[in-house]
Every structure is written in C-alpha cells, then in structure tokens.
C-alpha cells in the first residue's frame, strides 16, 4: 500500500458516528474524484461507493471512519481514488455471504451494498475479524483518455 514514494496524495478522513455523516462523505468523495480527474459519471459512482461504506459503518458498527484519498500508481502514470473504511464494530460473520447480492442481516435493507462497491471500484479488499471490526480498501483508477 506504500508503493507511491514521492507522489502527491491528498487525503481526507471523515469520522462516521451519525446518519448525516454520510452526506459529508459524499461531498468529499465527489470533490476528490473531480480533483483526481475523473469524469462526472465516475465521480457519481465513486460517491455512491463511498456513501455505501459510510452507511455500512453507521448501520452495523455505529462508529468508525472513511478515509478518501487521491492515489497514483508506482509508475506515476495513472491517478485514482482510494476508499478506506474501518470500524471497530462486531465484524462480519460470513464475508462470502455479505459479498453476495441481495444478502442482508438487516430488515428493510436491499443488501447490495458491499457487492456494488466491489462492482464500482477496480480493486476491493475486505478484512473482517469478529469482535474487532471490519476494514475495507477499495480503489478505482482513472481510465486512459480521461482528461
């Protein structure tokens, strides 16, 4: 994760403790995605993914944080956005199940949150430990040709 020596990165960390914090995550995600050079469609998609992560923290862990940053790959040829979500909640019991569409442990939820984050982003890693919490890292790279 630290293969970007010397490349400028910009990062914001948003603490999630209440419902309305998700709105702040959306604004920051859109702002940084725009700065990284993503087009409007991607900006919107990245905001959705970031908001999804924030909603999950608020719903299942009640508190945690979402970090959003502009990244560059090691060859400095591409810019991208990295979303890092971490909480100290109960953890996810079955990560494989949680990654399936329409699976949820909460009533009234659509249960497509995590799988859609994975679909939107290019890289996705999830690490969950029962009783310790969940850490999710997701990256989306700018496609060549986007100015």
């Amino acid at each position: 994760m630290s293969e970007r020596p010397g490349f400028p990165t910009e990062s914001r960390t948003i603490v999630i403790s209440k419902d309305t914090d998700g709105g702040y995550v959306i604004s920051i995600a859109r702002m940084l995605a725009r700065k990284a050079g993503f087009n409007e469609n991607d900006e919107f998609l990245i905001a959705a993914a970031a908001s999804e992560l924030a909603t999950n923290i608020y719903r299942y862990a009640s508190a945690g944080e979402v970090a959003i940053r502009i990244i560059r790959d090691s060859g400095n040829s591409r810019a991208g956005i990295e979303l890092l979500a971490s909480d100290s909640g109960p953890g996810i019991e079955n990560v494989d199940l949680a990654m399936q569409d329409k699976y949820t442990t909460k009533k009234g939820s659509l249960g497509s949150g995590l799988p859609s984050v994975k679909r939107i982003m290019d890289e996705f890693t999830i690490y969950s430990q029962i009783g310790i919490g969940v850490k999710i890292a997701a990256r989306k790279w700018r496609q060549h040709g986007q100015s």
């Binding site: 998700g22 709105g23 959306i26 604004s27 995600a29 859109r30 919107f44 905001a47 959705a48 993914a49 908001s51 999804e52 909603t55 009234g108 939820s109 659509l110 249960g111 497509s112 949150g113 859609s116």
Partner: peptide
C-alpha cells in the same frame, strides 16, 4: 441529487 447509493435508492 448529490449521490444515489442503495440506502438512498431504497
């Protein structure tokens, strides 16, 4: 709207 995620769509 600033963003649509599953919660907002719901």
């Amino acid at each position: 709207v600033a963003a649509v995620d599953t919660a907002i769509a719901n």
